[in-house]
Nucleic acid binder design. Sequence first.
DNA 1: CAATACATTAGAATCGTTCTAAACTGATAT
DNA 2: ATATCAGTTTAGAACGATTCTAATGTATTG
Lengths: 130, 130
Amino acid sequence: MKDIKHFLRQNSLRPTKQRVIIASYLFDGVNKHVTAETLSNKLLKMKAGISLATIYNTLHDFYEKGLLKKLMINSDRIYFDTNTEHHHHFYSKKDQKLIDINVDMKVSGLPKPPKNKKINKIEVLVHLDN
Amino acid sequence: MKDIKHFLRQNSLRPTKQRVIIASYLFDGVNKHVTAETLSNKLLKMKAGISLATIYNTLHDFYEKGLLKKLMINSDRIYFDTNTEHHHHFYSKKDQKLIDINVDMKVSGLPKPPKNKKINKIEVLVHLDN
DNA sequence: CAATACATTAGAATCGTTCTAAACTGATAT
DNA sequence: ATATCAGTTTAGAACGATTCTAATGTATTG
Ligand SMILES: [Mn+2]
Ligand SMILES: [Mn+2]
Ligand SMILES: [Zn+2]
Ligand SMILES: [Zn+2]
């Protein structure tokens, strides 16, 4: 509890009740992929009713501070990833679930980017069938 | 015109006026990435006012027949790709533009998929900076 | 304990997409 | 051809994820 408040302060975020609850869930040491909806459901199960507006605000605040990564994989929801290292994913459309690929992968045969463009990052998404 | 009607019939699609217009634009030999909105704008410029509902219906009908690929890259719009071969993309968030990568690329070091799951396809997305 | 800047919230607004239901049209049979 | 009917188009409503608004609440600092 003390460490989470300290952690939030270190990231220029006021340790409000809601932020402490959300941060202690998200940053408990186990990497997670959440959407606003899955996070809201999880918080409800923990008897912590936090408004959707606050959930969206908090996810974006954490993202702006670099504590979360945003994943645009799906056209109808934004995933937030507590693993901020560069990594890749398995994705099961059926389960709407992401699984980290933490091993080093190499992409070979990449062509040059178009004129005046620089490569920012390479993302590999491995779609699963079932 | 005759070939497009024939092409639509071959794909069990009635060659209506709107479908002929949309198909002759999409399948003119030059691969394209369109959204409902960019397609609508293009059709307006061609003096072909087709309702958004029909544009959505038609894109999905073509998709169901395997004439288009759906790309879920961005959380706020669905891209349809006239290149139905397996391939990868450069993506410029700034321009909201996709560019095909048609050369053979290889991904090495891929771990095994989770138990009971099979790999469907591997998608490489190369994000561009500017 | 003020004072104040920042945060939370319910509900409205937004926007891409999907749905509805009525009008229309291409294909087929007579 | 004309009638028939299933399939298609359309305007507008509905939907759902996300963002905005503006009123209320709270953490921080003096
Ligand atoms: Mn989706
Ligand atoms: Mn987007
Ligand atoms: Zn991840
Ligand atoms: Zn493509």
